[in-house]
Design a protein around this nucleic acid. Sequence first.
DNA 1: AGTTGGACCTGACTGC
DNA 2: TGCAGTCAGGTCCAAC
Length: 280
Amino acid sequence: MPELPEAETIRRQLEREVLGATIARVKLHHPRTWRYHHSATDLRRMVQRRRIVRVGRRGKAPYLSLDGATPTTLIFRLGMTGMLRVEEAGEKKASHTAAVLGLEDGREVRFLDMRTFGALIARRGHDVETMPDFADYGPEPLSETFTLDYLREAFAGRRAKLQDVLMNQHVIAGIGKIYADEICFRAGLRPGRRAGGLTGPMRARLWSAIREVLGEGIECGGSSARDRAYLDLFGEQGEFQERMCVYQRTGEPCRRCGEPVRRTRLPGGRGMHWCPECQR
DNA sequence: AGTTGGACCTGACTGC
DNA sequence: TGCAGTCAGGTCCAAC
């Protein structure tokens, strides 16, 4: 599923492909894609006939900064199955094409979204930190604002599970289930333990693991673990799944100690993958 | 405020 | 073969 490394891969590819291009027209095919707007027309008007002056990302969401009389930002909420493609206008559209941005040069940015958890959101202005989507977001884990001190303060008193807190976008932006499992493995910590109970050395290991694992995810161009998983702007798979140690490896030997990887699913909760030997 | 659990979706897979 | 049930897990929202 698209998490920070996948979103960053998309951002980098988009930057190369469409920075400076002008969006000539917008076609919205699925009503859930514009559900954050009063109407499809409202969203279309905010985005059409504008030039892309910056390609950014906050957490799991790539976005386009658009110029014009009123500066505007177009945010891509990818949800579970949202994907972006850049293709020639004549090329056959994939099924589940939810929206299309037609560029002046004849290419299209296509938004695919099988489960329609994703959305396109246009906001006035260019400062995403003040937008309701991101105002309460935690720091970018690969930026300088994400320090060990921040991690200590943000985790203090937290009774929720480590996995849940890692995935909480208000604590740290950009981590989802796949990378949460892999980060916990790298840090040698069980995803089910309470986040507030970590010792100083544990937090230091976790801090390093977050940055290492997400950095490697980006180097690999993201992960395409499942059948219908993430593909990049050109329909290509990422490679991080080949490096994964626990996610979706239930019963397979731990890459470090050989013990079978365990999967725990609490009633009502998400599944957690972890090594009972390597993680405490 | 923090935490939990359900709802939103569709397609692949499982078991009878 | 068919068909109900389960699972995938990002985000929002209601309830404690």
